[in-house]
Design a protein around this nucleic acid. Structure first.
Length: 300
DNA sequence: AGCATTTGACCGTC
DNA sequence: GACGGTCAAATGCT
């Protein structure tokens, strides 16, 4: 999927771009530190820079989600947009299907952890596939009124199609720690590329899964219920939640495992090759890590 | 006990 | 009436 950008950027887009430019600047600083650890003047540690990079991601994702939630139905090259769902219960009329829900589809050979907390609310057999379709809503639907839903359809022996409907407005987006640990099963890592006009200047970073700090692991509770146990059907890897009780971090939702992660520049990595990351294809609320490249879906 | 999943019923659309 | 999406009671797990 190619990223396409609007001719003129709305102010929110500009903000998102600025956030990402900042993030790239921090990543550049990090790259310098990693390449020349002795020249670090000590003003910002590599961990500080990692945090700043990820804050940039988080902020830009938040902005992009806001844009997305205000958009009308739209289409893009690899997004399938339908008006089939979702249904909304009207107490006076019963169920009413909202017709202009924004949806997009991803297919993957692995079950993607998109970083959100989902709760399964239904499963139906369909005519098109021998496997049942699974319905998920945002865990925070009632807490925070988040209307995001998704359907996961197993379409082949090792192929899953996920249809996302609506954007998260719950503010619980992008749990990077989950991204690095759960969705990167193939090689336990994710490449992030900050691209430049001059491709030679592109900065590629590998976000590695850390060896776990015990205090963080103990604060991460994985809740796998009945549906996850079913052999041969859906295995939803989500429903990870963080508790702030065992550490003093101010944003436990985002920080734990990622805080322990290493950001390794490609240039310095001898045992990791760019090609190894090609299997990665992860969607995070409008931002796609695809073939190691971070891409933004833009539609109008 | 609290929370998540399962699953049959219900409802709207075609 | 078939189909697909959601609800909600029952059930299971921690």
């Amino acid at each position: 999927m190619e990223a396409s950008w609007p001719e003129t950027l709305p102010s929110d887009w500009s903000k998102a771009v600025n956030e990402l430019v900042q993030g790239r600047e921090f990543a550049n600083q990090l790259n310098t530190i990693l390449n020349n650890p002795m020249e670090n003047d000590g003003s910002l540690s590599s961990q500080d820079l990692v945090t700043k990079v990820m804050n940039s991601f988080t902020n830009s994702l938040s902005i992009l989600n806001r844009i997305g939630s205000n958009e009308e139905v739209s289409q893009s090259k690899d997004s399938a947009v339908t008006s089939k769902f979702s249904s909304v219960k009207d107490p006076t009329v019963g169920y009413k299907r909202s017709k202009r829900s924004r949806t997009w589809t991803k297919e993957s050979t692995i079950l993607i952890n998109d970083g959100y907390a989902w709760r399964k609310y239904g499963q139906k057999a369909t005519n098109n596939f021998p496997y049942p379709r699974n319905y998920f809503r945002c865990t925070y639907k009632y807490d925070q009124g988040c209307q995001a839903t998704k359907q996961v359809q197993r379409v082949g022996e090792e192929l899953y199609r996920t249809i996302y409907c609506g954007h998260h407005t719950c503010g619980n987006s992008l749990k990077v720690s989950q991204l690095s640990s759960d969705s990167a099963d193939a090689d336990s890592s994710i490449w992030i590329t900050f691209s430049s006009n001059d491709q030679k200047d592109n900065k590629n970073y590998k976000l590695t899964k850390p060896d776990v700090n015990p205090s963080f692991t103990s604060s991460k509770s994985t809740k796998q219920k009945g549906g996850n146990r079913e052999n041969g059907t859906l295995l939803d890897p989500k429903h990870h939640q963080y508790s702030s009780s065992s550490d003093n971090l101010t944003s436990p939702t985002f920080l734990p495992q990622f805080y322990q992660a290493d950001l390794i520049s490609r240039e310095n990595s001898s045992d990791c090759t760019w090609m190894n990351s090609l299997d990665m294809d992860v969607m995070l609320g409008g931002v796609v890590f695809h073939n190691g490249m971070m891409q933004f879906e833009y539609t109008e």
